[in-house]
Amino acid sequence: MVSMNLVLQSLISGISIGCVYGLIGIGFCVIYNASGIVNFAQGAFVMLGGMVTYVLINKFQLPYIVAALGAIAVTAIVGAGVERLVVRPLWKRSAPMFVMILATLAAQIVIERLTYLAVDDQPKTLPAFTDRAPIMLGGVAINFQSLWIMGGSVVIVIALGLFFKSTRTGRAMRAVSINAEAAALQGIPVSLMLTLAFVLSALLGAVAGILLTPTQYTAFNMGVPFAISGFIAAIIGGFGRPLGAFIGGITLGLVQAMAILGLGAGVKNVAALSLLLVLLFIRPSGLLGSSR
């Protein structure tokens, strides 16, 4: 029989990894809302966040915080490059959605290969942000990195909400997501908003990678699994709904954690896809999506 402490421990782990899935899912939503594009290079941004931080710390001897900020900046530049070099030409030609998806998948592979050539194929990890013993609540251990992940994710979600509601740029991006043609007629630079959407998505992916890498390894080819999990989180929450994507990510993380506890690590992906299928049957629009 599984002990209650073990169940609680698994729930904490599920919420922690779920917050990361949620941030990745929000990245999908930001780009989709601005352009209608599904960006499957999102996983590469997660990988770059952890990988570039590792390289800056270990090869250039930069302080942790400087390396993290540098990694976020590098990933943002890569995000802008993907938009300008890959997405923009296709978007101007009104390319079909499946062409856009294939193009972003190709960008993901190119980024992976370049990372492999620039670094190597060995797994990398980062030290925990706080090097202290876990907090013990009865028989449940809560490590500080999990608190960093959960607290940081909540702060980012709140900041994003304020950005979209209270800033001129955020409101412009929302207007583009509602009706790009009408936004253009009002003088909003739609193409610039698209670039900013990719930059913001890359920032979210990089932060997710930096938060995650101290608890799991990063490698040149780890982006795709996290991109898939983030995509599932976005669908669960209601595609295009950032808050829904975050809730969907936590839901996915909890379901996977319970599946691993009850049936073993081998059913992790089965649990994720099963949750997706059940939700698509019950509520195709997602948890927070419109029923229309």
Rank of each mutant, 00 (worst) to 15 (best):
V78A: 02
G79C: 05
A80D: 00
A80K: 08
A80T: 01
G81N: 00
G81A: 06
V82P: 01
V82D: 00
E83D: 04
E83H: 09
R84F: 03
L85P: 05
L85I: 14
L85G: 10
L85E: 00
V86T: 13
V86F: 07
V86I: 13
V87D: 01
V87R: 06
V87G: 01
R88T: 05
R88C: 06
L90Q: 08
L90P: 09
L90W: 05
W91I: 10
W91N: 13
W91G: 03
K92G: 08
K92Y: 05
K92A: 12
R93D: 13
R93N: 13
S94V: 11
S94W: 06
S94Q: 15
A95K: 08
A95C: 10
A95D: 12
P96G: 02
P96T: 07
F98L: 14
F98P: 15
V99W: 00
V99S: 05
M100R: 03
M100I: 07
I101N: 01
I101C: 01
I101P: 02
I101D: 02
L102I: 12
L102Q: 12
L102W: 05
A103Y: 05
T104S: 00
T104P: 01
L105N: 05
L105C: 03
A106M: 05
A106H: 03
A107M: 03
A107C: 02
Q108C: 04
I109H: 05
I109M: 11
I109L: 12
V110L: 15
V110T: 10
V110D: 02
I111V: 13
E112K: 06
E112S: 14
E112I: 09
E112Q: 15
L114S: 09
L114E: 07
L114R: 06
T115A: 15
T115N: 04
T115M: 11
Y116V: 12
L117M: 12
L117V: 14
L117D: 14
L117K: 14
A118V: 09
A118D: 03
A118S: 11
A118N: 11
V119Q: 06
D121K: 12
D121Y: 07
D121E: 12
Q122A: 08
P123E: 02
P123D: 01
K124L: 08
K124I: 01
K124A: 11
K124M: 06
L126G: 01
L126I: 09
P127G: 00
P127Y: 07
A128N: 11
A128W: 11
A128F: 13
A128P: 11
A128V: 11
F129Y: 10
F129H: 12
F129Q: 08
D131P: 11
D131H: 10
D131K: 15
D131Y: 07
R132K: 13
R132A: 15
R132W: 02
R132P: 02
A133S: 14
A133R: 10
P134Y: 04
P134L: 12
I135P: 13
M136Y: 07
M136I: 14
L137R: 04
G138E: 10
G138K: 10
G138T: 13
G139H: 08
A141P: 03
A141Y: 00
I142C: 08
I142W: 00
I142V: 15
I142S: 00
